[in-house]
């Protein structure tokens, strides 16, 4: 078993290292989507308050296969969901990630997406809300191998800070060895729209409810890609509960 990581490592620089040591060692879960198959996966990280959790997924999406992966990361004092995704020729990977970090929580989504064959697509949408003195982090690395021509990779990260003491970190990282690739990324950190808040309140919606409504709307971007209506409703309901 390898030793616990230190803060010197780029992928752990925003982590709560004491909590990481508590959660160590980590046994990665392997997921393989066979050629031509479509798979979905929902990971809910809702560990008990105060706990430290690291969930690592080592994923292979074979040629022409696709995986839609969704994460709701909201539990424990420290909670990390890590994905190491390998995409073969023509594969597709969609990630919708939600982080709701309150109090003193440190919550992270860390991904490495490897485009090792030509014509693979990856789409990552991560939305997070941080309140109190919480820290929400998204680190997203896209690695395109020499064989990864016509890679199409996109990452979108948006964070909403509810309180002055809250922190959001986003770090997209590209490592590209092919020349014909499309890699897009965007990251924004903001606050709730005051005009929208006033609009809701002026119609009779109390401030707490108005904030929850706007926050949920903001997060729903990351859940919009859940194809199954029932699963999406369940995910939306879970997020609504977190914001209540």
């Amino acid at each position: 078993m390898t030793a616990a990581p230190t803060r010197r490592l780029e992928e752990w620089r925003y982590s709560d290292i004491a909590a990481v040591e508590r959660a160590w060692p980590v046994a990665p879960e392997a997921i393989t989507v066979a050629a031509g198959e479509c798979a979905t996966r929902m990971v809910v990280q809702d560990a008990a308050p105060g706990s430290a959790t690291i969930r690592q997924f080592d994923i292979i999406v074979a040629a022409g296969a696709s995986l839609a992966f969704h994460i709701i990361n909201s539990g424990g004092a420290y909670g990390r969901v890590g994905l190491d995704v390998t995409l073969h020729e023509g594969a597709r990977f969609d990630l919708g990630g939600v982080i709701v970090a309150m109090g003193e929580q440190v919550l992270e989504i860390v991904t490495t997406v490897r485009h090792i064959g030509p014509g693979a697509t990856s789409r990552q949408v991560v939305r997070c809300v941080a309140g109190g003195t919480a820290t929400a982090t998204y680190l997203g690395k896209v690695a395109v191998a020499r064989a990864g021509q016509q890679t199409d990779a996109a990452q979108s990260f948006k964070a909403l800070l509810l309180d002055r003491g809250a922190t959001a970190n986003a770090k997209p990282e590209l490592e590209i060895f092919a020349d014909d690739v499309k890699c897009a990324h965007g990251a924004t950190v903001g606050e709730l729209d005051r005009n929208a808040l006033f609009y809701l309140e002026s119609r009779g919606i109390p401030p707490v409810q108005a904030r929850a409504l706007l926050t949920r709307a903001f997060l729903s971007d990351a859940l919009a890609g859940i194809a199954d209506d029932e699963a999406r409703d369940t995910a939306e309901a879970r997020v609504t509960e977190l914001l209540a």
């Binding site: 729209d193 005009n195 929208a196 006033f198 609009y199 809701l200 309140e201 002026s202 119609r203 009779g204 919606i205 109390p206 401030p207 108005a210 409504l213 706007l214 949920r216 709307a217 903001f218 729903s220 971007d221």
Partner: peptide, 29 residues
């Protein structure tokens, strides 16, 4: 507070109505 004024019966029709992505008109209303 603004929401209490609304409940008391005051309605403000805005000069520039605000757009709210992700919240439907029906849900809002």
């Amino acid at each position: 507070a603004p929401h209490e004024r609304a409940a008391a019966g005051v309605f403000l029709g805005l000069q520039y109505p605000v757009e709210i992505p992700g919240v439907s008109n029906l849900m809002f209303l």
